Amino acid sequence: MTDWITTPVDARVLRGALDVEATEHGVLPHRLPARARRQFPDGYLAMVEAQPSGVRVAFRTGATAVELDVLPTKTVYPGAPATPEGLYDLVVDGRLTGRTTVTGGNVRTVDMTTGSMETTPGPPGTARFSGLPAGAKDVEIWLPHRETVELIALRTDAPVEPLPDRGRRVWLHHGSSISHGSNAAGPTEIWPAVAAARGGVELVNLGLGGNALLDPFVARALRDTPADLISIKIGINLVNTDLMRLRAFVPAVHGFLDTIREGRPEVPLLVVSPILCPIQEDTPGPLAPDFSGRQLSFRALGDPAERVLGKLTLNVIREELARITAQRAAEDPNLHYLDGRTLYGEADFAELPLPDALHPDTAAHRRIGERFAEHAFHAQGAFAADND
């Protein structure tokens, strides 16, 4: 029988979360701070910011067996294919060495047409890993990127201590559902995690599905979070929600960047435009789910002719972001721009099409992450070690 040692799950053993909330069962990691959460009434945003994309339980230990008790909340979408079970990825000394799922948990049903939600309670479960190598090692358990996870207890067969400072730079990233990890199989396979591993940096991922909308409270979170590197990937959500017109978009981008620069005036800041998405390159939103085929897909409802009225398309977004960053870079040499089609463009779409016409699959996530690392972290890149 294993002699278990229980370690409290708190901020000391959590990486990638901006806040930790005490709950009835344990603790809930948040990717937006409490002040920001008080400033939005949207239930969907509340759901996605609490989904721990990029968040991991991290510690140093000599343990060969680890258990993590959790209460997941799994999301289902009526009319859409079943969402795969969330994966818990075990990374030991930087290498993925194990992967498991957790049964049970709450079930949140989301109507994609109306946005209404209903939650059915369920029991906690346990993520178990055994056969870890003997001796002291750095262990990370990456939490499912598409499930809310309340953390109840961490058990090991040897003592645990927080990870020491490894001297890595902190990369703070904000983006849409693609940055959140939609359609990637596991939490270490979302493109920001792939890029972070390649770049040797500590990831804080503020990819918020459906909610990269230039919200001021997100800009303030980016401003107030200690980071050595910052990137923002802007565009697709503004188009597919049909949230604003060109007149509002331009000053909103300036205001978002101004806010970040209030607290991080000299940190390398990389603005990334949307990857290729044919259904919205020249067609405005809004976007709607399409259940007519064998699998869920999306279609744009706007009219390309409405571009002259100020409606946004991906090409309009890219043109304006390139212009805005070039204008500001004259006085801000640490501001950089990357066309998202460099990460995923027409040739990539032909080889690795978007399964639902909107989100990349696991293989495309890997490609996007690798290319981001090649562009951002190379010797002349925005995030080169000698640039910050």
Rank of each mutant, 00 (worst) to 15 (best):
Pro251Ala: 04
Thr6Glu: 15
Pro278Ile: 11
Ala322Trp: 00
Ser116Tyr: 12
Asp332Pro: 05
Arg245Ala: 02
Gln327Glu: 15
Pro192Cys: 12
Pro164Gln: 10
Val250Leu: 08
Leu269Asp: 05
Leu90Glu: 06
Pro33His: 07
Leu87Gln: 11
Asp111Asn: 15
Gly125Pro: 00
Thr188Ile: 10
Leu354Arg: 13
Phe59Tyr: 12
Arg60Trp: 00
Gly105Met: 01
Leu229Gln: 10
Gly302Tyr: 00
Thr64Ser: 13
Asp332Cys: 03
Phe383Val: 09
Asp224Gln: 14
Arg294Asp: 15
Pro72His: 00
Arg15Asp: 08
Thr97Trp: 01
Arg328Gly: 04
Met112Leu: 15
Asp339Pro: 15
Glu320Cys: 04
Ser177Arg: 05
Arg60Asp: 10
Leu32Cys: 09
Arg99Thr: 08
Gly186Ile: 01
Arg261Gln: 02
Gly210Ile: 06
Thr225Lys: 14
Ile178Gly: 07
Asp89Asn: 13
Val271Cys: 02
Ala305Ile: 00
Ala17Thr: 07
Glu319Leu: 08
Pro265Asn: 04
Ser177Met: 02
Gly263His: 03
Ala248His: 07
Ala196Thr: 06
Val316Cys: 08
Ala185His: 11
Asn240Ser: 13
Glu49Pro: 09
Ile152Asn: 14
Pro226Asn: 14
Pro78Gln: 12
Ala363Asp: 12
Asp3Glu: 14
Ser116Val: 11
Glu320Val: 10
Asp339Thr: 10
Thr148Val: 15
Leu354Met: 09
Leu343Glu: 09
Ser182Ala: 14
Ile190Pro: 13
Arg15Val: 09
Ala195Asn: 02
His254Thr: 01
Arg108Asp: 09
Pro162Thr: 13
Thr325Val: 13
Leu269Ala: 01
Gly175Val: 01
Pro216Phe: 04
Asn387Tyr: 03
Ile236Thr: 15
Arg223Asp: 09
Asp69Ser: 13
Phe256Tyr: 13
His180Leu: 08
His25Ile: 01
Arg294Pro: 11
Asn334Lys: 01
Val139Leu: 07
Glu306Gly: 00
Asp3Gly: 14
Gly369Phe: 03
Pro84Gln: 06
Trp191Asn: 13
Ser297His: 10
Glu262Leu: 07
